[in-house]
Amino acid sequence: MASNAAIDASGLVKRYGETVALSGVSFDVPRGTVCSLLGPNGAGKSTAVRILTTLTEADEGTATVAGLDVATRAAEVRSRIGLASQDATVDGLLTGRENLIMIGELHHIGRRVATERAAELLEQFSLVDAGDRLIKTYSGGMRRRLDLAATLVAHPEVLFLDEPTTGLDPRARNELWDVLDILVDEGATILLTTQYLEEAERLADDIVVIDHGRVIARGDSRSLKRQVGGDQVFATVVDPATLGRVSELVGRTAGAEPEIDEGARQVRAATAVGPRAIAELATALAEAGIEVEDIGLRQPTLDDVFMTLTGHHAEEVEEGADE
C-alpha cells in the first residue's frame, strides 16, 4: 500500500442482489491532489464513495483512506474524512450554525471549538446572514454550500464530494468551484464525483472514468481528450444544400475526416490545432461565399469519451446496467 496515497482502493466489488454496482475498481489518490470519478448515472460512483467513507462494506477488495483500512478501522477513518453526500444531508430543522456545531461536537472537537469553527465557516462560505435561519428556508445553492462547510468542520484529511454541483444553477456552481479552489490551494485531498467532463477538467488533477462498475480510463483531462481525438471544430450552415462544400472545407482546415449531421445542418471534425481551426475555417468559408449560422470549437463531452472508449453512449448505460 502506497503510504503517500490518501486513498487507495484495490479490486473493490459490490453487489446489490443481481446488480453489480462495482466489479473490481482500483485507483489511488496521492495526498494533496484532486481526483474525479467521472461516469454516467448508475456507473457506481456513489457506491465507491460509500465504501471509502465506511457507509457500506465492499464484498471484495480492500481500501485505505488516510492510510487506514476502511473495513477494520472505520472509526479512525471517520474522524479523518468529510463527506458531502449526493443529496445534501444537512438538517432542515436546525439552523446553519446549529448544523455545523452539531457536526463539530460529533467529531469530538469540543463545543467551544465547534462554535468558533462554525462562525469561521459561515464567513468563508458567505452564509453569515443566513447562519441563524433554519436550513429549510435555504435555497438549493445555500444548502449545498452549507453541506460542504459541514464536511470541513473538523479539518478532514480527505474530502469526499459526491456530485457536489448537481442541481445548482451555473452561478451557484461557479461559486462552489471557487470554494473548492481554495480548499485545493490549502492542500486538501479531494475525491469528487461528477457526470460532467467539464467539471472534472476544471477541478481535478486526475480523472478516473467509470462505467458499469469498472474503471475504463484514467488520466488527466488532456490525455483523456487526446484519446477522444481532442477538440472538434464545427460549422452550422444556413442552407442545407451547402453541407457538402462546407464538409470539404472543414475537413481541410481540421485535418481530419468530417462528420455531417443533416438534422442539425452541422459539420464537425476533430482538430488538433485548436482555435486556429476556427480562424482558418472562417476565412475559407468567407472566400467561398458560404453563409453560416455558427462556427466554433467544441470540447469533447463525457458522451464523446464514452463513445470512443466503449462504443456506446453514456445514456445507454443506465438501461444496460443490470444486463
Partner: peptide, 8 residues
C-alpha cells in the same frame, strides 16, 4: 448516512 460517516 451523515451520522454514520461521523466518528460517533
Amino acid at each position: 448516512d451523515r451520522f454514520r460517516s461521523l466518528p460517533m
